[in-house]
Design a protein around this nucleic acid. Structure first.
Lengths: 115, 115
DNA sequence: CGGTATCCTTTGAGATACTG
DNA sequence: CAGTATCTCAAAGGATACCG
């Protein structure tokens, strides 16, 4: 029988658990859709993310090398975020999920209603 | 600017948040790898999932029509789980993510170490 | 503007015990 | 064997206030 070891010993589970959090995919999607964006642009694009969680999520994505952060020494300050190569390489797979969800959402909601 | 509306109004976010939880993908993966499985087989396959969370996850996947649950009226009881058509149709996209994670895990861990 | 820091609430999830 | 119920705790995440 094929087994799936605990998170601590499985790098794949580790990596996927990071992008599988509440906000990471959405940040990646909006950066892909809109190109380089400033902090508050991303904030407005996602609407219901809190200030704090946007910072946390951006830091995570940056630490994993999925997005790039560029600070401009201006007043008022300007910080721009964009997808890295690695971040871009992940996006087709996210789109795969999104398209599947779009194609299946109707029947899934029907199914739930029966339960 | 392209926007990404809140979960309550976005069916895609809703659907993806269900399979993006801690265990759903792993259950789907093990059912795909091993075919029809009993409750305790899945439990052993995942190793670190709790009894309770396995039940909860299975109920969710069943409610969304991604897995099928068949109860046999025997003593001791036997319950078998298997992927549905819809569940199977999701798997290629999960594999896309897994392969991406496998290909990128090494450089991601390096990147994290620098931060 | 783009953050940090703090506090507080909500959710996720494990442990344990009990049941048909 | 395959659950359900309860209890508990840790982690995620929101609100708010303050800072360079």
């Amino acid at each position: 029988m094929k087994k799936f070891p605990p998170t601590g010993s499985c790098p794949v589970r580790d990596v996927l658990s990071r992008i599988g959090d509440k906000w990471s995919m959405l940040v990646l999607l909006t950066l892909h859709a809109n190109g380089t964006m400033r902090f508050n642009e991303i904030h407005r694009s996602l609407e219901d993310i809190s200030h704090r969680m946007l910072t946390v999520t951006l830091r995570m994505l940056e630490a994993d090398g999925l997005i790039a952060r560029e600070v401009f020494a201006e007043v008022p300050p300007r910080v721009e975020y964009s997808l890295t190569e690695r971040g871009s390489s992940l996006l087709p797979h996210i789109f795969g999920l999104v398209e599947w969800a779009q194609a299946n959402k109707a029947s899934i909601f029907e199914e739930r209603a029966r339960h």
